[in-house]
Design a protein around this nucleic acid. Structure first.
Lengths: 112, 112
DNA sequence: CTCAGTATTTAGTATTACTATATACCAGTA
DNA sequence: TACTGGTATATAGTAATACTAAATACTGAG
């Protein structure tokens, strides 16, 4: 729990799914968007391990396209399973974040 | 990211710190409070690895007391370093949860 | 030609939560 | 006595995930 790195575990994949759901995009761009969001420590390697996992779990469609800015890009879009996974992610996120905010603000029941 | 387990990584230690900050408590009771909160999958072993880590990092004071309900309990209270760690945790949590909620609701800037 | 920026990939490591088990104390009960 | 269940701590091993670091490759600017 040294920095926000550990706090990102388990939510970064969901963030990547969300970014892909907004429209066709590729690893390098996803990384930049996460950094713009505020997660400045996220590096390419981290995002690629996530996109590889999404591929392996058949949550995305892939299309390779040429780029004038460098090597070819691998564009991702969510398939149905990916969209379902994303929906579940947001449900889980709402549950967990609500519970943690509850812990932050409310009293705790203590046994007599 | 199968269930909420992975989402709890990096926040569970902070939750334990918060629970201890509310008043002297011990591992078994912390586990029960986390389960009452809604994190029903949290088991004793998980909490003990966290409290051991807190001990190792000198974030807690320890006092062993007898119990009429079973074996002796190890009661924890936060020391100054533990309170500081907790403050940082909540700062990080606010940052991360705000950013994620931002991602959830807002548009993404895309490059032209 | 070299370098910086863009772009993907992978081997290895650290952190963290879970599984499973062992140990132990006490009360109720057969 | 012996056994069971609830309370309570501890630890070895595993799985998941994000990071570090490096390799590879394409393009344009100098």
């Amino acid at each position: 729990m040294e920095n926000i790195t550990e706090m990102l575990k388990g939510v970064l994949e969901g963030c990547v799914l969300e970014i892909i759901s907004r429209g066709e995009t590729y690893g390098y761009e996803i990384t930049q968007q996460l950094r713009e969001l505020g997660f400045t420590d996220v590096v390419e390697g981290t995002v690629y391990t996530i996109t590889m996992r999404l591929e392996k779990n058949n949550l995305v469609n892939i299309e390779k396209k040429k780029s004038t800015m460098g090597p070819p890009r691998k564009f991702y879009t969510l398939n149905t399973a990916g969209q379902e996974k994303l929906d579940i992610f947001w449900e889980n996120w709402d549950f967990v974040s609500n519970k943690i905010n509850e812990l932050k603000t409310k009293e705790i029941k203590r046994r007599g």
